[in-house]
């Protein structure tokens, strides 16, 4: 059973006269437990694709399925299913953590979602679950009463990761999860993502401009250019034998990240 299926999906922004096509005729199937890296330059439509999967954006044309059922932003049941099994990590943890909430409140927030009530495996004891996920991302319990500004960038991204994992999601969406971090902590956070995706059996869809990150974390890669998916395949294959000139360019443009 595929987690996400995109069939000829296009997303257009703006009015009739001046519209921007963020995605054009994208076909993509993401199976369970796969780790996808979507690569592209800024403006290639990566973030739009991720928002589509997160149910924050609707396709202008084409169809989108979630566990083989059509995903419609207006239909409650499918959206409830999506919202209770998908979590997202954002690029800049300064903006993705509410500056006025304590870490305990931030991490516990997804557990308060009314959509989780229908799920049996949801942690009942919020405080215990917060402790659990904070430990899983390598943060001390004393962090709970502090505010986001009291942490470094890497630590904040760990907090964001803890929040995403708290409700035991099936799918993790990540929007450039390490791009805003210092080079020195990128590898740590990426390894953490790897380990957690492994141990929790997640499906990962990560968007990035950095092929080195994809090579390190993902088993499948899709290359986006001007809203079109120009190359799709297993990471090793695409990296070693790129079929498109554009993919070659991207590969040659990045230095390898040794981790």
């Amino acid at each position: 059973m595929s987690v996400f299926g995109l069939n000829d999906v296009s997303v257009r922004f703006g009015g009739r006269r001046r519209s921007v096509e963020a995605l054009r005729g994208v076909d993509l199937v993401i199976e369970e437990h796969e780790r996808w890296g979507i690569v592209g330059e800024s403006g290639s439509g990566k973030t739009t694709l991720l928002k589509l999967l997160a149910g924050l954006e609707a396709p202008t044309s084409g169809s989108l399925t979630f566990f083989d059922a059509a995903l419609d932003l207006r239909r409650r049941e499918t959206m409830a299913k999506l919202r209770s099994s998908v979590q997202m990590v954002f690029q800049d943890p300064r903006g993705s953590l509410d500056p006025r909430m304590t870490i305990a409140d931030i991490v516990a927030e997804p557990l308060r979602s009314p959509l989780l009530r229908g799920r049996g495996d949801v942690p009942r004891d919020r405080a215990a679950r917060v402790d659990e996920v904070l430990e899983a991302v390598g943060l001390d319990r004393s962090a709970k009463s502090l505010y986001p500004h009291e942490f470094s960038g890497g630590q904040r991204q760990r907090i964001a990761l803890a929040r995403a994992l708290a409700p035991r999601p099936k799918i993790l969406l990540a929007d450039e999860p390490v791009s805003a971090l210092d080079v020195s902590v990128r590898a740590h956070v990426l390894n953490l993502v790897n380990d957690l995706v492994d141990s929790m059996g997640l499906t990962l869809v990560m968007v990035t401009h950095d092929l080195a990150v994809v090579r390190h974390t993902c088993d499948h890669v899709g290359v986006l250019r001007h809203g079109q998916l120009v190359e799709v395949g297993a990471t090793g294959e695409v990296m070693d034998h790129p079929r498109q000139a554009y993919t070659k360019e991207l590969i040659n443009a990045v230095a390898r990240l040794d981790v």
């Binding site: 959206m79 919202r83 209770s84 979590q87 997202m88 997804p110 979602s113 009314p114």
Partner: peptide, 20 residues
């Protein structure tokens, strides 16, 4: 801000987002 998106992705209702 992204923390609003994060809350929306979790399915937190608008009224709760307004207050919290």
């Amino acid at each position: 801000q992204d923390y609003i998106l994060a809350a929306q992705v979790s399915g937190i209702p608008g009224g709760v987002i307004a207050i919290r």
